[in-house]
Simulated scan of single mutants.
Amino acid sequence: MSRPSTSGASAALPPFANGERFVYHISWFSILAGTAVLEADRSTTSDGQPGFRFVAAARSGPLVTRFYPVDNRVESQVDAATLLPRRMTFRRREGRRKNDFEYAFHHAAGTVTAVKDGRTDVLAIPNDVQDAISCLYYMRSMLPMTPGATLVMNVHHDKKNYKLEVRVEALEQVEGSWGAVETARVIAIMPFQGIFLNQGNIRVWFTADERRIPVMMKANVIIGSVVAKLVEGFSLSTASVP
Rank of each mutant, 00 (worst) to 15 (best):
A80F: 01
A80R: 06
L84F: 07
R86L: 11
M88H: 10
T89P: 02
F90L: 11
R92G: 07
R92I: 12
R92V: 11
R93F: 06
R93G: 01
G95Y: 02
K98D: 07
N99S: 14
F101R: 06
F101L: 13
E102T: 13
Y103Q: 10
Y103S: 08
H107V: 03
A108M: 07
A109I: 09
A109F: 12
G110K: 01
T113R: 14
A114T: 03
A114C: 06
V115S: 09
V115N: 12
V115T: 14
K116V: 10
D117N: 15
R119S: 12
R119F: 10
T120R: 12
T120C: 09
T120Y: 14
V122M: 04
A124G: 09
I125L: 05
I125G: 04
P126H: 09
V129L: 00
Q130E: 12
D131H: 08
D131P: 04
A132F: 05
I133R: 01
S134E: 05
S134I: 04
C135Y: 09
Y138I: 12
M139R: 05
S141F: 08
M142H: 11
L143Y: 00
M145D: 04
M145R: 00
T146C: 05
T146E: 05
P147S: 06
P147D: 06
G148E: 00
T150C: 07
T150F: 10
L151T: 08
L151C: 06
V152F: 05
V152M: 13
M153F: 03
M153V: 03
M153H: 00
N154Y: 08
H156W: 00
H157Q: 10
N161M: 05
Y162L: 01
Y162M: 01
L164V: 12
V166W: 02
V166H: 01
R167V: 09
V168K: 03
V168T: 06
V168E: 02
E169M: 13
E169V: 13
A170P: 04
